[in-house]
């Protein structure tokens, strides 16, 4: 991002704060004007929808801050769904075992990305477009066009069971715990300092003893594992494993991360902003649905928000710069000219 945009974003106050304010505003205005937004059921849906996106957005935020990107996440999710389904068909009937296998597989898939990016020095955008196709392809190899849906009710309800006394699914606690871990790593540990440094200037980071390759490799591993976890949740929540589960979700996640204030060029952004933007998009989508605004309008709004989030600060910065120049020029332009 240009210097100007960086400064402009600084001037707008912390972008995370902007996102939080927007989230609260949308929630309040929605509750007051749209029937049903205030209901507990609404928040249950918002949470269920936000959980997989949030799970994937956590590692994605860190990856984008290092200047890389992982577009294969939705395919890892899809592949995990099919593997969980196939294993169930084959008679693996222990949920913890399925979760463990999924996490391991996700980590391996992420390690493949990491190996191509850090081992061979290839651009992650190209590599993960490749593995996006590869992993989704493998999902079709596993299940073809079949769907596996006959899971035990105990499993499917376990994923969406509400916290006692609320309608919010308990899984949100898992997401919250993971979010805290990721936030602490990013914002309050030497590892996080290294991530910001390499995102701004990988060469200088290496000269300061930051192991750039190692950090990026493990981030891709984490991204794979978290996507697999999202895949398990997806399978159980919808009680259905299909090869096309979560198709296109990668762009939704990237959109949320970018709207959350993370610079696509790396080195800038905060986890709070990303979580706020994930929630903002979820609340907005569901609230407008309740208001009978058609789905396609939501698509337009998502896209516009994303564009506005980068164009807005830039334009504000430009205008401010111009204003400042005009002011500072005023006395130096002598009347003799």
């Amino acid at each position: 991002m240009s210097d100007r945009a960086i400064r402009a974003r600084g001037a707008l106050g912390s972008w995370s704060a902007v996102m939080l304010v927007a989230l609260v505003a949308v929630a309040v205005v929605g509750s007051l004007t749209i029937d049903g937004v205030a209901s507990p059921r609404f928040w249950r849906f918002v949470t269920l929808e936000a959980i997989p996106i949030a799970l994937i957005a956590l590692p994605m935020t860190l990856i984008v801050i290092t200047g890389e990107i992982d577009l294969s996440v939705a395919s890892v999710l899809g592949l995990t769904c099919t593997v969980v389904g196939q294993l169930w068909v084959w008679g693996v009937s222990s949920l913890p075992a399925l979760i463990a296998i999924s996490l391991l597989m996700g980590a391996v898939l992420g390690a493949v990305n990491g190996l191509f990016v850090t081992g061979f020095g290839l651009p992650s955008l190209a590599v993960t477009i490749g593995t996006l196709a590869l992993y989704r392809g493998l999902a079709y190899v596993v299940l073809g066009d079949r769907a596996v849906a006959n899971y035990p009710v105990a499993w499917t309800t376990s994923a969406i069971k509400p916290l006692p006394g609320t309608t919010i699914p308990w899984v949100i606690l898992v997401v919250a715990a993971l979010a805290v871990i990721f936030a602490v790593v990013l914002h309050a540990t030497p590892i996080g300092r290294g991530l910001y440094a390499m995102g701004n200037n990988a060469e200088a980071a290496r000269f300061a003893g930051v192991n750039v390759r190692q950090a990026k490799f493990w981030l891709f591993v984490a991204s794979g594992a978290m996507s697999a976890l999202a895949g398990v949740f997806w399978t159980l929540r919808f009680a259905s494993a299909r090869a096309d589960n979560g198709t296109g979700l990668e762009l939704a996640v990237v959109a949320a991360v970018l709207l959350g204030g993370v610079s696509i060029f790396g080195g800038r952004g905060a986890l709070l902003g990303v979580l706020a933007s994930v929630c903002l998009l979820g609340v907005l989508r569901n609230a407008l649905q309740l208001a009978y605004v058609p789905e396609n309008t939501l698509t337009v709004i998502t896209g516009s928000l994303l564009i506005a989030s980068v164009v807005g600060p830039n334009v504000v910065g430009m205008l401010r710069e111009r204003l400042r120049r005009r002011r500072s020029n005023a006395p130096t332009v002598s009347p003799s000219s």
Partner: peptide
Amino acid sequence: GLIATAKVPALVVTLGTLYVFRGLDYM
């Protein structure tokens, strides 16, 4: 226009217009 005048990254802008144009199509 957005990329050249507002100087914003193409990946972000075109990801945004991916949604906007498709949404207009649906509408």
